[in-house]
Design a protein around this nucleic acid. Structure first.
Length: 413
DNA sequence: GATACACTCGCGATTACCTT
DNA sequence: AAGGTAATCGCGAGTGTATC
C-alpha cells in the first residue's frame, strides 16, 4: 500500500507522509544550558563521531587536553542528545547515557514533551542528510572531505544554537516515533551483527592466507609424497627429497644505504610498502626481496623494478638455485619475533638472517610453489577486498536506512 | 554574545644520523 | 655492518581561543 505523501518544503527531507508535521527543533526539544558552576561533577565526557558519548578516560585518539577548570564546562544528562556545535556536520552527535560535564561548545538537547520521543529524534540527528543540511548554518567555512571514509571534517565551523533550534525536523505522531525508533534499534543491531561477523571472516581469511603460505612452503604441493622431519620447529616435516639450508646459501644479503638524493625517477624503498621518494641513483636493478633491518621487519617486500633502499632495510640477491619468489613466501611465513633483538626498536642483522634455516626444494619446485601461491593469495586477497567492500556498503546502508524511515519514505510494518 | 579563526595531542611508523 | 637514538611525518581525532 502506498501512503499519501506531501512535500515537506524542506530540501533534505523531501516528501513526508501526509499526517506528519514539520516543526522547528525548539518546539520539540529543549536546550539544556546547564553550567558546571558551582561544580556539580568532575566526570568529564567526550564526544566523537565514531564512539558517541564516552567518559573522557575511555576516549580514543587525540584531541586537546581537558581543561583543569571544570567549572567552565556544561552538563550533560542521560538521554540528552549531545552535539558538538563545530563538528556535528562530521557526525559528532550522539545520545548520552552518562551524566557528566562536557566542553562548552557542545549543545545538549532533551525532551520534556510527552509528544517527543528522544530516541526518534536522536535517529534523525544520526542521518547524514540531516547533518549535511546544516552546512549552510555554520559560521566559518573550511571543510575537509576525506575520500577514504567520505567524512566531512569541519575545520572551523560553528553552528549558533539559535540557528540549530530553528532547524526543521519531520515529526510523526508519538506512537509512530516510538515505533520507528524501536524498529531502527532492532535493524541497526541486526546490521551491526552482520558487520562484525563479516569482519571476523576477514580476519579468518587473513589467518588462512598466512597458514596456507607456511603450509605450502614447508610441505610442497604433493600431499602423497614421503615426509621427513626437518628438525626445525616451525617447519616441522618436509618432503623427503627437500633440503633445509641456511639463508646465506639461498640469497646474498646487502645493507641499504642512507644519503638519498631526492630527485630523479628511481623509487626509494624503506620498510613501508610503497616507495617514499625518488632519487637519481640505482642501488640494484634486478628483482629482489627487501627485508626489514629496524622497526618493521616482519613485512618482506618483493620488488621488480630498479630501486634504491635506505639503511634500515636489506635487499637480497638470489643464489644460482634460488627462485626468489619462493624465498619471498618463505620470509612471509615465519615468526620473526623469535629472531629479533634490541631494546626500543626490534632489529635484525645479517648475521642472524644468514643463519636462519629454510626449506629448499629444487629450483623448479620452488617455482611451482611460488606460482601456486601467487594465484591462491591473489584469490584470497580479492575475497577479502569483497568483504571489506561489503562492510562499507552495510555501513552506508545503515545511514540510508535511517533517512528512509525518519522521513517516512518507508513505513514501519 | 557574536564572530572569525587553528591548533593540539597522541602515537606509531620511519627515516636520519651518529658512534662504535 | 650494526646498534642506538633523535627527528620527522602522517594522520586521525579532538577541542576551543582571541577579539570585537
Amino acid at each position: 500500500m502506498v501512503r499519501a505523501m506531501k512535500d515537506s518544503g524542506v530540501e533534505w527531507i523531501g516528501e513526508i507522509p501526509e499526517h506528519w508535521d514539520i516543526k522547528k527543533i525548539k518546539y520539540l526539544l529543549k536546550e539544556r544550558n546547564e553550567k558546571n558552576t558551582p561544580i556539580k561533577t568532575r566526570d568529564i565526557l567526550s564526544l566523537s563521531a565514531a564512539n558517541g558519548v564516552v567518559p573522557y578516560g575511555e576516549k580514543t585518539g587525540g584531541g586537546n587536553k581537558a581543561k583543569d577548570d571544570v567549572s567552565l564546562y556544561k552538563i550533560a544528562h542521560p538521554k540528552d542528545i549531545v552535539m558538538n556545535s563545530m563538528n556535528i556536520i562530521a557526525g559528532s552527535v550522539a545520545l548520552s547515557q552518562y551524566h557528566g560535564c562536557v566542553s562548552p561548545v557542545y549543545y545538549m538537547f532533551y525532551s520534556d514533551d510527552k509528544d517527543s520521543d528522544i530516541n526518534y529524534f536522536s535517529n534523525i540527528f544520526q542521518s547524514k542528510e540531516f547533518q549535511r543540511s546544516l552546512m549552510g548554518l555554520g559560521n566559518g567555512i573550511l571543510i575537509k572531505h576525506s575520500e577514504k571514509s567520505d567524512k566531512l571534517n569541519t575545520i572551523r565551523l560553528r553552528i549558533p544554537s539559535e540557528k540549530m533550534k530553528n532547524t526543521l525536523l519531520p515529526v510523526p505522531p508519538l506512537k509512530e516515533q516510538r515505533k520507528i525508533a524501536a524498529m531502527l534499534d532492532e535493524k541497526n543491531a541486526h546490521i551491526d551483527s552482520i558487520i562484525s561477523k563479516t569482519k571476523e571472516s576477514i580476519e579468518a581469511f587473513k589467518t588462512y592466507k598466512q597458514a596456507l603460505i607456511t603450509e605450502t612452503v614447508t610441505k610442497g604441493l604433493n600431499p602423497d609424497v614421503k615426509m621427513k622431519d626437518s628438525g626445525i620447529e616451525w617447519i616441522g616435516e618436509i618432503p623427503e627429497h627437500w633440503e633445509i639450508t641456511k639463508i646465506k646459501n639461498i640469497v646474498k644479503i646487502v645493507n641499504g644505504k642512507d644519503n638519498v638524493v631526492k630527485d630523479g625517477e628511481i623509487p626509494v624503498y624503506g620498510s613501508s610498502a610503497t616507495p617514499f621518494g625518488f632519487t637519481d641513483k640505482i642501488m640494484h636493478d634486478k628483482e629482489t626481496v627487501l627485508l626489514g633491518r629496524k622497526g618493521t621487519i616482519d613485512k618482506p617486500q618483493f620488488i621488480k623494478e630498479p630501486f634504491w633502499a635506505v639503511d634500515t632495510v636489506f635487499y637480497t640477491i638470489p643464489k644460482r638455485n634460488t627462485y626468489l619468489k619462493f624465498f619471498f613466501y618463505c620470509m612471509s611465513g615465519f615468526d620473526y619475533k623469535k629472531y629479533t633483538y634490541g631494546s626500543a626498536i626490534p632489529s635484525m642483522s645479517q648475521g642472524i638472517l644468514n643463519e636462519i634455516k629454510l626449506p629448499y626444494p629444487i629450483l623448479k619446485e620452488q617455482q611451482q610453489i611460488a606460482d601456486f601461491l601467487d594465484e591462491k593469495t591473489a584469490h584470497i586477497d580479492s575475497l577479502i577486498a569483497n568483504k571489506e567492500k561489503m562492510v562499507q556498503e552495510l555501513e552506508a546502508y545503515k545511514k540510508a536506512m535511517i533517512y528512509e524511515y525518519v522521513t517516512g519514505k518507508k513505513e514501519v510494518e
